[in-house]
Design a protein around this nucleic acid. Structure first.
Lengths: 137, 137
DNA sequence: TGGCGAATTAGACAAAGTCCAGGTATTAAC
DNA sequence: GTTAATACCTGGACTTTGTCTAATTCGCCA
């Protein structure tokens, strides 16, 4: 799916994010692909045609988007963080060999028996990661 | 709990790991504490009294232990990997503020509705991470 | 047009982890 | 005991991901 410039602007604005050129470019890459991308991949994609955005801005922007709830971090690979434009509750299937991440819809999945938290604590998220690899030949 | 030198030696041997001095020191730290420790913490603990083990050896040894199934990686913090001496199935409660990790026993917990994997793939593990933080004051 | 705050930038920096070439132990054989 | 073979360990250079800072630039509005 592709997003019009206006759609992206209003998306950012609904999250209290000023719609600058660089932020729109980065949002474009994230939302049009709908993939799980690492910062360095986003940096490369944004500058594919001509250099438009610096490394610092990509990192700043991803942190901003994450803080504002526009995207979500996926922590499955100790080497780098992936960013997920889908903020609906869902989980992840991680191919350990290829590094590929795919979604597991949350509504197919039920978890019961989670422990009580201490009363002054709140859950910020439940991440389920199913790791898989190719069967040994 | 504390482990005797002999107990550690046989533990390593059962996992096909030659019981060298440095490996025993590292195993001692991991298994006697039973905590989730990062490599740099293990390095510091092993050298607490006198320098015995280099950074390279700590990293090599942790990777070896992990490959041989003696310990498990816990990937919850993009900044560093934690190592878990408990290889029984269980999950983790992660305090986002303090970085503290505690165990959730697997038998209290039921997950249903996990998707079918492609036939040539095998699950290498299902990690569930419950992230929590202090409620806003 | 000019000025102001917000955003962007290059590049230095930091931290975690890996790699390599050389040195040290341990074992085995004589 | 020496020697040889092998496995292991080490310092330090290096890589990668991400952050920080101080200076510049942008975009807006009066």
């Amino acid at each position: 799916m592709s997003y019009s410039r206006d759609a992206l602007i209003s998306l950012l604005q609904r999250h209290d994010i000023g719609p600058t050129h660089q932020r729109l470019e980065i949002a474009q890459v994230l939302f049009s692909r709908g993939e799980h991308l690492a910062a360095e991949q986003i940096l490369a994609l944004v500058n594919e045609h001509r250099a438009e955005t610096s490394k610092a801005t990509v990192y700043n922007t991803l942190n901003l988007f994450r803080d504002r709830g526009l995207i979500r971090e996926v922590i499955v690979d100790p080497k780098r963080v992936f960013y997920d434009p889908n903020t609906q509750p869902h989980h992840h299937l991680y191919n350990v060999d290829s590094g590929e991440i795919t979604d597991i819809p949350a509504d197919d999945l039920v978890v019961s028996g989670l422990p009580e938290l201490p009363p002054d604590m709140v859950t910020t998220g439940v991440d389920i990661i199913v790791r898989m690899r190719a069967r040994q030949p």
